[in-house]
C-alpha cells in the first residue's frame, strides 16, 4: 500500500497541534452570564405565555450587554 508520507506528516502535525487546548471561552464570564439568566428564570418561575416573551427579551438584553452591543436591536 503506498502512502503519501507528506500527507501523513501534515496529519501528524495537525494531530499534535490539536492537543494544545489554548482556544477556549472564558468560563468565568460565561458562568456569570448564566447566573444572570438563571436570576431571570427565577423571577419568571410562575410566568404565563405572555411573560415568556418578556423573559426572552430580558435574556437578550443580558447577552447583548455581554457582547458589548448597546441595545436590544443591535444584533438584528
Amino acid at each position: 500500500m503506498s502512502i503519501d508520507k507528506e500527507e501523513v506528516k501534515k496529519i501528524m502535525v495537525s494531530a499534535a497541534d490539536s492537543f494544545n487546548p489554548e482556544v477556549k471561552e472564558d468560563d468565568d464570564e460565561i458562568d456569570s452570564l448564566i447566573n444572570e439568566i438563571i436570576m431571570i428564570e427565577k423571577a419568571h418561575k410562575h410566568t404565563s405565555q405572555g411573560g415568556v416573551i418578556r423573559k426572552h427579551e430580558q435574556i437578550s438584553v443580558k447577552i447583548n450587554k455581554f457582547l458589548g452591543y448597546d441595545n436590544l436591536n443591535n444584533n438584528s
Partner: peptide, 16 residues
C-alpha cells in the same frame, strides 16, 4: 452581530 448572538446562545446552552 446576529451570528455572534447565536454563538453565545449556543455556548451558554452547552455550558449549562
Amino acid at each position: 452581530r446576529k451570528k455572534e448572538f447565536i454563538r453565545v446562545l449556543n455556548t451558554i446552552g452547552l455550558r449549562i
